[in-house]
Write a protein that binds this DNA or RNA. Structure first.
Lengths: 133, 133
DNA sequence: GTATCTGCAAAAGATTTGCAGCAAG
DNA sequence: CTTGCTGCAAATCTTTTGCAGATAC
């Protein structure tokens, strides 16, 4: 089946692409809906289509939310601030080596990995201290 | 507030403890319900209570399901077979070192991490080959 | 005894789907 | 034109919640 690039889908993709951070379906809907009126189910269907084309990726985090981001050419992981939800890119992937070891040790055919390092970013930490004074 | 250890909660905890793998709320409910008739909401409330006491831990995976397991004294991660859902323990944690580096580099106060390595276990791989013959 | 569980049914939140009409290629 | 997109409302799935009665300590 062919995927049609409609105005709404283009808008949804640009909302995701332009965002500096990962967005939830609802954030994407809210943002896109301001420019072009659309239904949440349109957003969900568009997200599926974009995922199928590998134009975007999703990550389900331990906070229970599902986040979407534009696919980048580098394989990247992130530090996530549990306070403000900002993310910081981590250089390199610490798992490549581990995966080789694991393949040899366990016989698993490894197909993917996901990880999430959480903490409080310097900004939020500072705010915290200020409010405690 | 005090937490009461009722028969049902004890049963729920033993179901989780006795299981060799991570279980979903529904699996826990189904298993426990066979011994002592109970309502799903009892299971959810028990899971929250047990999480609060740190007797169990939960993990939300990329398959969208939430899994629970008995808390163990070692810090552990797992290889997950995306076919049969079996998990295999990984020795050591590859992130301890990375976290130190990240703290220094980014100023983040790191509070936790979660990761998930997925693949096909040797068993499932074998089954696959057999069925293709 | 009294605070905390439990069952039940209803509610909530996120996502999916059926169907009829609309738009892209 | 024909396949695939969209809106809407209803359905789904998982988890939560209010309340009245039951139970642990």
């Amino acid at each position: 089946m062919e995927v049609k690039l409609t105005k709404k889908r283009a808008l949804i993709l640009s909302v995701i692409t332009d965002s500096s951070h990962f967005m939830t379906a609802d954030e994407i809907y809210t943002a896109a809906n301001q420019t072009l009126h659309m239904n949440p189910s349109t957003v969900y269907r568009a997200l599926h289509a974009l995922l199928d084309c590998h134009l975007i990726e999703k990550q389900i985090r331990q906070d229970g939310n599902t986040y979407y981001k534009r696919t980048s050419n580098e394989h990247r992981h992130h530090l996530i601030c549990t306070n403000c939800n900002r993310t910081i890119d981590i250089d390199g992937c610490p798992l490549a080596e581990l995966e080789n070891t694991l393949t040899t040790k366990t016989g698993f055919k490894i197909t993917g990995h996901n990880f999430e390092i959480t903490g409080i970013c310097p900004n939020c930490e500072e705010q915290n201290h200020k409010s405690e004074e």
